[in-house]
């Protein structure tokens, strides 16, 4: 079973200057292309959702996940990356 080349990055926490800059820096370094980006205040959280293409990523998925989490920690945010299939499976028939 082929898993999707696309992944979802979720960023949660308090809004501040430089969130997109910080996260997209990590992505650029790893040759991960941003396909879509949106941010909202949802359920009292600042929420940013990015759809990215990880097929050309220079880093393994696990390393990318680690780097993003680390960058998030620096900025006091929770940053996670997941392959999109989990969302498609859960929310679409």
């Amino acid at each position: 079973m082929e898993i999707s080349k696309r992944a979802i990055i979720t960023v949660l926490g308090n809004d501040r200057v430089g969130i997109i800059y910080g996260i997209s820096g990590v992505l650029a370094q790893n040759n991960v292309n941003i396909l879509d980006i949106s941010q909202t205040i949802l359920q009292e959280f600042f929420t940013m959702v990015m759809v990215v293409d990880v097929s050309q990523s220079l880093a393994e998925f696990a390393q990318l996940k680690e780097q993003l989490a680390l960058k998030g920690k620096e900025m006091g945010l929770q940053v996670n990356i997941q392959h999109e299939d989990i969302f498609r499976y859960m929310h679409r028939i």
Binding site: T10, L12, L42, Q43, T47, E84, F87, H91, R92
Partner: peptide, 13 residues
């Protein structure tokens, strides 16, 4: 990609 932010947040929660 047609999953809404609400749905993504639901999975996260």
């Amino acid at each position: 990609f047609n999953i809404s932010n609400e749905e993504i947040l639901e999975t996260w929660r």
